[in-house]
Design a protein around this nucleic acid. Structure first.
Lengths: 125, 125
DNA sequence: CCACTAAGAATATCTTAGCCT
DNA sequence: AGGCTAAGATATTCTTAGTGG
C-alpha cells in the first residue's frame, strides 16, 4: 500500500504557504513532528487527523489517500467548480493548463506558480 | 467532542453478525483489542482504519464520526475533459491557477502559457 | 459463548538538540 | 530560515489471563 498521507499533508500545508513550524504551532506540535508526518515516519492520532481535515476543509478519506477528491461532500463547491470548468473549456489558452498540469512534475508547477506571482506583481505596479 | 468511532465500529460489526473474536481474527487482532476500539479506549492505526473502511465499504469520515452517511461517494461516469479537470482542481498546488486564471487578463494568461511552453522545452533537453 | 478488565510487554510517538542546505 | 535526523523520555497500544453475565 502506497503511503499518501504525508504527501497530502505536505501539499495542503505548502498550499497555505506555511512552514512546518508555523503549521505545528497551530496544533501544539513541534516542527519535527510535522516533518515526520509528511515523511510518513509517524502518524497523528485520530483527534489530530480530524483537526487537520477540519483545518484544510478536506475529508479524512482524502488525507489518508483513499480517494482523490479533497471534499466530495460540499455541494455548493461542486457547482462553483462546474462554472470554472466551463470557462476553462471555452478558452483555448486555458485548456493546456488543466490538461497538462495535473500530470506534470511538482518542480515545473512550482516554477510556473512563481512566474505567475511575478506576472501579477509586475502588472500591479 | 463526542467519540463516535467505537459506536460506528460496533454497529458495523454486529450488522454482520460477528463476534469480536471473529472480527478480530480477520485482521489479526485479539478480541479484547476489538472491544477496546468499540469502547473508545484504544485506537487502531491508519492502516487498520483503512482496512476497516474497506471491509465495511464505508468512508473513514463516517467511521470517525465526521459525517453520518456511510458511503457518500457516487461513482458517476465523466467525460474525459471533466475527468482531467477534476484532477486539476483536486491538486492543492494547482488551486491558485483554477481560481485565478478564468478571471485574469488575456495578456497575462498568454504570458503564462508561453512560459509554460518554455519550461517544458527546457526540461526535455 | 460473548464481552469486559487488568497489567506487563511490546510499539509507537514527541520533543529537544544538533546538523545540513 | 526551513527542513531533516538521532535518541531518550514519554505515551500508547496489544496480548494474555482471568472475571462475569
Amino acid at each position: 500500500m502506497i503511503e499518501l498521507f504525508g504527501k497530502r499533508l505536505k501539499s495542503l500545508r505548502t498550499s497555505k504557504k506555511m512552514s512546518q513550524k508555523e503549521f505545528g504551532k497551530l496544533f501544539g506540535l513541534a516542527e519535527s513532528t510535522i516533518g515526520m508526518y509528511e515523511r510518513d515516519e509517524r502518524r497523528p492520532d485520530f483527534e489530530l487527523l480530524n483537526k487537520f481535515a477540519n483545518y484544510f476543509d478536506v475529508s479524512t478519506d482524502y488525507l489518508l489517500g483513499r480517494i482523490d477528491t479533497p471534499n466530495p461532500y460540499s455541494q455548493e463547491k461542486k457547482s462553483a467548480d462546474e462554472e470554472a470548468f466551463q470557462k476553462f473549456l471555452n478558452d483555448p489558452n486555458l485548456q493546456v493548463f488543466y490538461k497538462e498540469l495535473p500530470n506534470s512534475e511538482e518542480e515545473e508547477i512550482e516554477m510556473l506558480r512563481e512566474f505567475w506571482e511575478f506576472i501579477k506583481h509586475k502588472n500591479k505596479t
